[in-house]
Design a protein around this nucleic acid. Structure first.
Lengths: 300, 300
DNA sequence: TTTATTGTATTGAATTATTAAAAACCATTG
DNA sequence: CAATGGTTTTTAATAATTCAATACAATAAA
């Protein structure tokens, strides 16, 4: 009928745990102290104390608070389990779009999404509002939301944007000091690439993971919140598209490994021009792949 | 107690207007037709018809709908006026932050903002959710929102990101075909710059407008929804910061004009390297100015 | 007094409930 | 059977409700 009292329930159990550490008949600390312990406001603490008094766990009169008995398991409050459903909403949402190939210009029903993802409606609305900043969805005049991507133009613009960010990252990377952890990650990545190349005939689908790690390593050099925010979306989209598009996967991945290695070589030689050229080449291939995987469904 | 019936009221008035164009005793078209006319669903149309029947404007029996008399002004429904308050919320919000120098790590109260900006709470929540994508605000664990920017690191990262986007735009611009409208805008911009340079001693604060137009012209060459979305925020922030920071404004603006002209020259000469260098120089100055304007309040 | 603590009131935000509107579905008429 | 109207179901906007945080006043301890 109103907001949940999860906070109270959690705090109550945490305070029980704390009381268990106290000796029998011990004095219970001040409300504000308890608030710090349970990381909640005094209001919640008082509600907890109130309940503890009811349950004959403590005697409470003004600032005189005494523990009457040690708390046991039956004192604990039950938690309505709906663990972290809204945590990885973004991940799951994009996954859903790409996995089920949800077409562009589909109207999204907040109510339906809310049911399917097990997330309250208002959270979904906020989430969609956030996505609209990336031009992936938009508000309809009659109310409600509409999925804009994945059109061809969306993919093109996303690829171009990715290229801009990644080339910038490369420029930063060649300038990175020798003791930057990035170089270590790069060497690891090279080894992993070479190892996969050996057994590419059988394990070619392992490339997807390598690819993500590789690009993340490069972008890790750039410490920029705007870039990071976009990178999350970009990598997710490219990642899943590679997973779903099964055409010529083996050849494609083999070629991509070579392209990656070329970039690594140029980076380690501190040759910016060569690294940029290699990256351009690689991202061009990427873009082509992404576009060809859209060819069939996208008529917009 | 629930959603407003603005849609119904607007539709009713629009249908009155439509009925006024009909002759006396005319047949009123089908519900779905009326829905198209007023751009609403049949549900709303039926509510309108129902009311029109009550007011003895029409006779309504199944598909037999007849206009009984011409509608007059007293038939119209009053509109609770709250015209387009939420339209330029973004503009007004950022303006507020910069104008009043709202410090970083300020907790934002949705209720208060809602009152001050005259926008329903849920719209504000969605808006803030959108801004959080740009790292300008974030959710607090205890609920509510917190303003993150304008810290020094935010300004640095924003400037860097702007540089990345703008250099990319320059690269695109030199490649633009001769008949691209951009070249016209650039020439206009050059003329305006030269004109302002003549009377810089008195009209130096006019530069802010010029600056915005200049950068918008350059970025107009890049057709990319992600870039466009960011550019909106970036230009707004830089724009206002220039407005508020009054130190050495005349000298600063004079120098900036020269820098702009250098970029224009290089662009029109189709000299990419020179254009990039000039832009780098200009954006570096920009960044320095932005940072020095923060010097005083920012201790984070 | 001064300071720490509690008691109380006010304000804010998460979440539900309610109503307007849209959409889907079925019935009927010409 | 096609177009239109009646009815039901579903969705989304928004206010109301309740939990929680915070501000402030009162009081006891130092």
């Amino acid at each position: 009928m109103a907001r949940s009292d999860t906070r109270f329930r959690e705090a109550y159990n945490r305070l029980l745990d704390y009381c268990a550490t106290l000796g029998p008949d011990a004095a219970v600390p001040a409300e504000s102290k308890l608030g710090e312990i349970a990381n909640v406001s005094r209001t919640v603490v008082r509600r907890c104390l109130s309940r503890m008094e009811d349950k004959a766990l403590i005697r409470w009169d003004g600032r005189e608070k005494r523990l009457l008995r040690a708390p046991n398991d039956r004192d604990r409050m039950a938690q309505p389990d709906q663990a972290g459903a809204s945590d990885d909403l973004e991940q799951r949402f994009l996954e859903w779009i790409l996995k089920f190939d949800v077409p562009a210009n589909t109207t999204l029903s907040v109510a339906e999404l809310s049911r399917n993802f097990g997330v309250p409606q208002h959270e979904l609305k906020e989430f969609l509002a956030g996505l609209s900043r990336f031009g992936l969805v938009t508000r309809r005049k009659q109310g409600g939301w509409m999925l804009l991507g994945f059109t061809r133009s969306f993919a093109v613009e996303l690829s171009d944007f990715r290229t801009v960010l990644e080339l910038n990252a490369i420029s930063h990377a060649v300038e990175a000091p020798v003791d930057h952890p990035f170089w270590g990650r790069l060497e690891e990545s090279r080894a992993a690439h070479l190892a996969l190349l050996e057994r590419i005939d059988t394990d070619f689908h392992e490339f997807s993971k390598l690819d993500e790690a590789f690009h993340m390593a490069i972008n890790s050099v750039v410490k920029n919140r705007f870039v990071a925010e976009f990178q999350k979306v970009i990598s997710l989209i490219f990642h899943y598209h590679y997973l779903w598009d099964k055409t010529h996967e083996k050849i494609r991945n083999g070629a991509a490994i070579e392209e990656h290695l070329a970039i690594i070589d140029a980076l380690e030689a501190r040759d910016e021009a060569a690294a940029l050229a290699a990256t351009r080449r690689h991202l061009k291939t990427s873009k082509t792949t992404l576009l060809s995987s859209l060819r069939y469904h996208d008529l917009v």
